[in-house]
């Protein structure tokens, strides 16, 4: 017991010497929104919108897909910061986000009218893999930024927080490839643009434990 008291006293002494900056979730969330907005805006400004964007937005499937992507980008980004502090998952609204990813896939599949044949043709066309690389490249800055933000906190739900961060980042990549890239076929989008979102979210789930450990 005495040893514990000594130990506690040493922590108190340490606290007197070092007063860390308070991790304010509200201001961090605002910073995330600012970063995401500036990043997406910059990439679109530099790369330009796809040539047929005016036609694409008139398609219901494309509009819903883009709206869902934006929701995933911002909500998952903010949720990842909210899970950078000790807390239980409980009834957090963030648990809905993985289901939204499934909804996104269903929208592309059903509203985009993707047939099995078209899927097989797309899967067997590896030259389209540049789309996936584009999604991953578009996700890297966001993933780095979110991981950096989270590493300054003390997350206790590491897998969940890691998957949310990579979900937001991969949704960024997906959004950018769809708004800047020229892919026409929804089968190609489903195979090469949407699947990296699932894969990167899984990567976050698997490596969150290692990346965010403190």
């Amino acid at each position: 017991m005495n040893e514990e008291n000594e130990f506690i006293k040493s922590l108190v002494e340490d606290a007197a010497d070092t007063q860390p900056t308070v991790f304010d979730i509200a201001s961090r969330s605002r910073l995330v929104i600012l970063f995401l907005t500036v990043y997406l805006g910059l990439v679109i400004a530099v790369m330009g919108l796809r040539s047929d964007w005016y036609y694409q937005v008139t398609l219901l499937s494309y509009s819903i897909e883009m709206a869902l992507s934006v929701i995933l980008i911002f909500f998952a980004g903010i949720a990842s910061v909210r899970f950078s502090v000790p807390r239980a998952i409980g009834r957090s609204p963030a648990v809905v986000l993985p289901f939204l990813v499934v909804v996104l896939g269903m929208v592309i599949w059903q509203l985009g009218g993707v047939s099995l044949n078209a899927l097989i043709v797309s899967v067997t066309t590896p030259s389209l893999s540049y789309i996936s690389f584009g999604v991953i490249a578009g996700a890297i800055p966001t993933a780095s930024f979110l991981m950096w933000q989270m590493s300054q906190g003390s997350p206790t739900q590491l897998k969940f927080a890691g998957s949310l961060a990579l979900l937001s980042a991969s949704a960024c990549g997906h959004f950018l490839m769809r708004i800047v890239g020229q892919a026409q076929s929804f089968a190609d989008v489903l195979v090469w643009c949407y699947s990296p979102v699932i894969i990167l979210t899984m990567v976050g789930l698997m490596f969150g434990q290692k990346l965010l450990k403190w």
């Binding site: 506690i8 922590l11 340490d14 900056t21 502090v85 000790p86 003390s154």
Partner: peptide
């Protein structure tokens, strides 16, 4: 105790 100490800013 160390974790609480390290995470107190959050």
């Amino acid at each position: 105790l160390i974790s609480v100490h390290n995470a107190r800013h959050t």
